[in-house]
Write a protein that binds this DNA or RNA. Structure first.
Lengths: 202, 202
DNA sequence: CACATCATGTGTGCACCGCTAACATTATGA
DNA sequence: TCATAATGTTAGCGGTGCACACATGATGTG
C-alpha cells in the first residue's frame, strides 16, 4: 500500500540531501547553499542533516565530489583521446561551459573556502590532476609532465573562472567557445613567436 | 583636545568601512565578511553602513576594487617591463603569492558571486586586462593580442586559484614559486614539442 | 542669527542561518 | 524479548542581512 504518511526514518537521507543540495544550486546559481534549505527539500527537519554531515562544509564537500565526477564525465565526452591543440581546445570549451552552465556547483567545487583535506575532495581532484597529466603526456611528450599538467589545468581553470565572473565581456555561448578556442591556440602556439631575447632586441 | 566622546557623525564612514572590511579579511582569511562586523570595527551601529552601501555586495565591490589596485601595484613591482618568459614567470609568481598572502581579499575579488556590473569592478578589471594585453603584445608580437591576453591571464589566474584551493599539494612559499615558474615555462615553450599530427603518428 | 532641511547616525525588529541539546521513534541484534 | 544504537523531532542560542522609524547635527537661506 502507498504510505502517504512519511515514515519516521527517511531511509537514504544522506544521498537525498546531496541531491537536494545539487538541485538547489542548479535552480539558483547565485544563492548560497543552505543546510536548512536542503533539509526542507528533502522533507526533514532542520536538525536532521547533522546526523549525516558534521557541518555545512561536509555537505558541501559531498556536493563538490559529485560535481567533480560530472565534470570528469563531461571532459571525457568532449574528446576521448586528445592529442592536437584543437582536441585540447574542445576539452577546454567543455570545462568552461560546465562552469557557465552550473555556476553554483562550480563555485562549490572551487571557490568555496572549504576544508581541502576532505577525502572525497582530494580523491576527486587528484583524479582530475591525473587525467590532465595523462592527456598532457600524450600531447606534449617532450615537456615536463608535471609542470605542463599544472599549466594546462590552470589555463583551462582560469578561463572558466574569468568567464564565470564576467571578467571577459562575452555573452553568447558560441562566442565563449570561440574565445576559449582562440586562447588555447594562442598559448599553445606561442613559443615560436616569442620575442627575441634582450641581447638581440632593440 | 582629544575627543574621547565620539561625535555623532563619523566623518568618513565610507572609507572607514572599506578599510575595516579589508582588515577583517586580512585577519581571518577564511571567514565570510560580515557587514555587521565591519560596522563594529568602524565603531558604528549595524544599520549605519546602509547609508553608504546599498547592500553587502556594494561594500564587497568597493573592497574588491582596492584589492585590484593592490594587485596591479604588486604586478608592476614584480617586473616593470617584461619581455622574456622568465619576466612573465616573475609576474605570475607575484600574482599567485598575492592570492596566497591575502586569500580573503582575493576571494572577494574573484570568487564571490557578485554583481559584475559594478562600475568600480569593471573599471579595475578592465585595467588589469589592458595591462596584461600590453605586456603580451610586447612579449608575443606575432600572436593575436586579445586571445593571448586571455590565455596568459587565465593561466596565471588558474595557477593562483588552484594553489589557493589546495588543488596542488605544495607547502612552502618557495616551492610554490618554483612550481609556478615551471608551469609558465612549460606552456610558453610548448608549441615546438607538440605531438606530431595524427597522420605521422603511430 | 534663527531655523528648515537633509544627510547621516541609532535602536528595534524580522526572517533566515549554522549549530547544539534534549527528547521521540524505530531498526537491529543478543 | 527487549536493550541499545541509529536516526528522526522540537526548541533555542547567537549571528547575519536588511528595513523601518527616529535622533542628531551639518548646511544653506531668510
Amino acid at each position: 500500500m502507498a504510505t502517504t504518511t512519511q515514515p519516521y526514518h527517511h531511509g537514504d537521507l544522506h544521498n537525498a540531501l546531496v541531491r537536494a543540495a545539487v538541485e538547489l544550486l542548479e535552480e539558483d546559481g547565485a544563492a548560497e547553499l543552505s543546510l536548512r534549505a536542503a533539509a526542507r527539500r528533502a522533507g526533514v527537519s532542520t536538525a536532521a542533516p547533522y546526523r549525516h554531515f558534521s557541518d555545512r562544509d561536509a555537505l558541501l564537500s559531498a556536493v563538490a565530489a559529485v560535481g567533480y565526477q560530472d565534470l570528469a564525465a563531461r571532459l571525457a565526452a568532449a574528446h576521448p583521446a586528445p592529442t592536437t591543440a584543437d582536441d585540447l581546445a574542445a576539452i577546454a570549451i567543455a570545462y568552461v561551459q560546465f562552469a557557465l552552465a552550473r555556476p553554483g556547483l562550480f563555485r562549490v567545487m572551487f571557490a568555496e573556502p572549504c576544508d581541502p583535506t576532505s577525502p572525497e575532495r582530494v580523491a576527486a581532484t587528484t583524479a582530475i590532476h591525473e587525467y590532465v597529466k595523462s592527456i598532457v603526456q600524450k600531447s606534449f611528450p617532450d615537456a615536463d609532465p608535471d609542470a605542463m599538467a599544472d599549466a594546462v589545468w590552470a589555463l583551462v581553470h582560469g578561463l572558466a573562472f574569468l568567464h564565470l565572473d564576467g571578467k571577459f565581456d562575452v555573452i553568447s555561448t558560441g562566442a565563449v567557445a570561440d574565445r576559449v578556442r582562440a586562447a588555447v591556440h594562442a598559448v599553445l602556439g606561442a613559443s615560436g613567436s616569442f620575442a627575441t631575447p634582450p641581447d638581440t632586441q632593440l
